Simulated assay, not measured.
Amino acid sequence: MTEFFLHLIVNEHAGAGKGGQTAKLVIDNLEKQQIAYTVYKTEHPKHAIDLAAAVAAEKLVPWHEETDKQEPFPLLVVIGGDGTLHEVVNALAEQPLIPVAYIPAGSGNDFARAAKISRQPEEALRHLLTTTKPKELTILSYTEAIAEEQQLFVNNVGIGLDAAIVAAANASENKARLNKFNFGSLSYLSAALKILFRQKGFPISVSANGQTIAFEHAFLCTTTNHPYFGGGVAIDPLADVTQDEFSLIVVERIPLIKIFYLMLLLIRKKHLTSAHVHRFVSRHLQIVSTVPQAGQTDGEEMGVRPYDIQFSTAKRLFWL
């Protein structure tokens, strides 16, 4: 079994305080097992970017097959939500061979679901400590031409309905209370019911696999490399984080009564059979939305604006 020195990046505020509780459980277990570690706590949004970059520069090393002979291995462990993991992965964008371990402690934890990481801290830690080498997974990259920004993401980028739901859920006074009782997904459901009545259709064009298709009344537009968004909703049951391709799900605006029926199909993971749901699979894809819409990446708000955004795949090592 590999011997570790763990470098823990902890977002104590993730999941309305769940991050701090999870970190305490993990640290107590490490103390009992006499495993060496150092803790780096985030103090403000995007702080995990600076922490990860500093730790990588001073403490971490890329993984190679012969690396396990160099013990103890310095392993970076993220304790927080999908947003914290998003920051760390972007901080290490140029160092994909430095493996990242993850103990989920957010409200959504969609990456953990996709990568089959236990959402029970003790079990996630046990698996981490008994794993002997990392796995290469597909993540995604986007370049947005209008705002001139580029990022990696581990879950999905959404334009329209899902992004508006994320914004409403983040602003909800109930989110913190629900997270305390592990019902964080209900905050998304509550926000969804409100936004469903407000979200209007908007025009987009999708360029993929040598074709460009225009939609006059898009409602939801989600690019993802695994099934889940919004705290466990399987927006694309066919997506797989181990594959080299990713998918785009476009849902057209339809009458409200049909939307509720579509939601029932979504719960049963049958929505891809609907004529109003379109699935694109590719390694490179472009979306243009000229009418300002809400956007989100890995559950973090991108603001309300027009988009000219290109997507592609990337690879990185995770300690799974």
Score class of each variant (00 low, 15 high):
130 T>F: 11
214 A>R: 12
283 R>K: 15
48 A>R: 03
147 A>P: 00
105 A>N: 05
142 Y>E: 05
123 E>R: 12
153 F>W: 04
254 I>F: 04
256 L>A: 11
62 P>D: 13
88 V>M: 06
107 S>Y: 04
242 T>D: 10
84 T>G: 02
13 H>R: 13
176 A>R: 11
183 F>D: 08
14 A>M: 01
291 V>L: 13
99 P>H: 12
159 I>Y: 02
172 S>L: 10
95 Q>T: 15
224 T>N: 06
285 L>H: 02
20 G>M: 08
159 I>S: 04
83 G>Y: 01
119 R>T: 13
142 Y>C: 12
266 L>Q: 06
106 G>V: 02
216 E>G: 07
265 L>S: 08
1 M>W: 01
252 E>L: 08
289 S>R: 00
211 Q>Y: 04
315 K>R: 14
4 F>K: 00
285 L>Q: 03
168 A>M: 11
145 A>M: 09
15 G>T: 05
127 H>N: 15
275 A>W: 06
174 N>S: 15
288 V>Q: 10
310 Q>S: 15
223 T>I: 15
139 I>A: 04
100 V>A: 09
111 F>C: 01
148 E>G: 06
44 H>K: 15
185 S>D: 03
92 L>I: 07
86 H>N: 14
155 N>D: 09
60 L>R: 05
156 N>S: 15
230 G>C: 09
257 I>Q: 12
98 I>W: 07
232 G>F: 06
266 L>R: 10
249 I>M: 11
131 T>E: 13
188 Y>E: 03
164 A>L: 09
124 A>G: 08
278 H>S: 05
172 S>C: 10
265 L>D: 10
317 L>T: 02
20 G>Y: 03
129 L>K: 10
241 V>L: 15
54 A>L: 10
195 I>C: 00
153 F>A: 06
44 H>V: 08
217 H>D: 12
